[in-house]
Design a protein around this nucleic acid. Structure first.
Lengths: 244, 244
DNA sequence: TAGTGGTCTAGACCACCCT
DNA sequence: GGGTGGTCTAGACCACTAC
């Protein structure tokens, strides 16, 4: 009987613990987890609480549940580097592919919003935005080029000490006191323009994945406009999805 | 007090009803849903049941929940045509984009599995597979070319009367008695080959989205290998994801 | 302060799998 | 039959928002 400490939501704690056990192969790929009742008494929580965690893990495809038989670790999660909705954190994505991730801040400046940014962010064209351009490396190879625009009006404090290593959602929390609730993304295949080609050091005729993202808060206010170019020759974009 | 009939899981019934009300704008975009307790008594179910439905809808980004304030219909779901995991049902995807969807069966034959198919399906190369090639139209424009391979060994009955209009998961249920539990997909940008170009009637230099999918059942058995070419100039691939 | 969603419990009954 | 996950209930208490 191991009682989890109370302050943070129990569900989150249990979630983290189980994830960690799976990651460390304490529950090996294909192996069976303890039963719901067993886990409930291990953690000193109710079965309902355990179930809501297991449901979340199953929705991600991390575990597979079999009625009457047990709960099993999905054997095939080894090669998967993301689930959509987690595509946002490129550092994680790269590291999950077994590469070393690093970031180079190409530029960070305040400038007028482009037409496209303005309409996406529901602001007037020309209004100032903080423009971040970052390059993500996988083992020293440039894999992802990321443009982000954040309305300056959202900034609450000084963002000058921002180092570029921070995921966007964390930046928003820290410097804008804003929380991302949902994202709308367009996925396209494109031929890169000159600038992108140079940055990603790829062939001009090489098609790239283009990810256009708009992040919203709970009040449907657009917080960030993102334009991302993904070199899928260098880094596979592979994801699991539970079905049903 | 409206009591839902019992045979099917209550959660599914409530889920369908709420979806329908949102679709018909009985709860208009941006509008507030009744409170959890209110819905619970409307349906004659417990609050926990209602909550699990609302949690599912929120995870899809269909509704937004605000503590202390209420549950609201996401204003922006109009333009979204899919959530990943629903990319599989191309017919829905096309119709959600406001186009008329139709399908042309290009070919359906039994042939030997290619190397790639065999390794993906964990069968030996050369083993017979049912190969389906289908072309999906959006308003009479060819938008998606889909190749699917299913091991013949999985077929339980006759599939000769298959008309091509059926989604893959339904086909598997009906003709193989198999249920899809999760999917692993690779998303890439490619330049199409000759055959694909002709089918999709696009420019040879036009980059396409390539979706490589492997569908698994609860026992980690690969059921279907899918290769899909998506013309994103014709049909945007736009999705919502809840964050957190 | 009243009402809303967020968290959590304890326990019931069912459907399914295994042996 | 015994254990596992699947469904559902009734009710408690907390955190937040609006008024």
């Amino acid at each position: 009987m191991m009682v989890v400490k109370r302050p943070k939501p129990i569900v989150d704690q249990v979630n983290s613990i189980l994830r960690e056990r799976i990651r460390r192969q304490e529950y090996p790929p294909g192996g069976r987890l303890p039963s719901e009742s067993e886990l409930a008494s291990q953690f000193g929580v109710s079965r309902a609480t355990v179930r809501s965690v297991l449901a979340a893990l199953a929705a991600e495809g991390l575990i597979v549940r079999k009625q009457g038989s047990g709960t099993f670790v999905n054997e095939r999660i080894r090669d998967v580097n993301t689930r959509l909705g987690g595509v946002l954190d490129f550092t994680h994505l790269i590291e999950n592919s077994g590469r070393q991730a690093s970031i180079r801040m190409v530029s960070a400046q305040t400038r007028a919003a482009t037409e496209c940014e303005a309409s996406s962010l529901a602001i007037t064209a020309g209004e100032p935005v903080l423009s971040l351009v970052r390059l993500f490396f996988a083992d020293e190879f440039p894999a992802i080029l990321s443009y982000n625009a954040i309305p300056v009006a959202l900034l609450t404090g000084e963002a000058s000490e921002y180092d570029g290593g921070m995921p966007i959602h964390q930046f928003l929390k820290q410097y804008c006191n804003q929380e991302i609730v949902y994202v709308i993304s367009d996925i396209r295949a494109t031929l890169a323009n000159q600038e992108v080609v140079e940055m990603l050091e790829c062939d001009p005729s090489c098609p790239l994945l283009e990810l256009v993202e708009i992040f919203y808060n709970r009040n449907n206010r657009a917080l960030v406009f993102g334009l991302n170019y993904y070199n899928d020759k260098l880094l596979n974009l592979r994801l699991v999805q539970a079905w049903g």
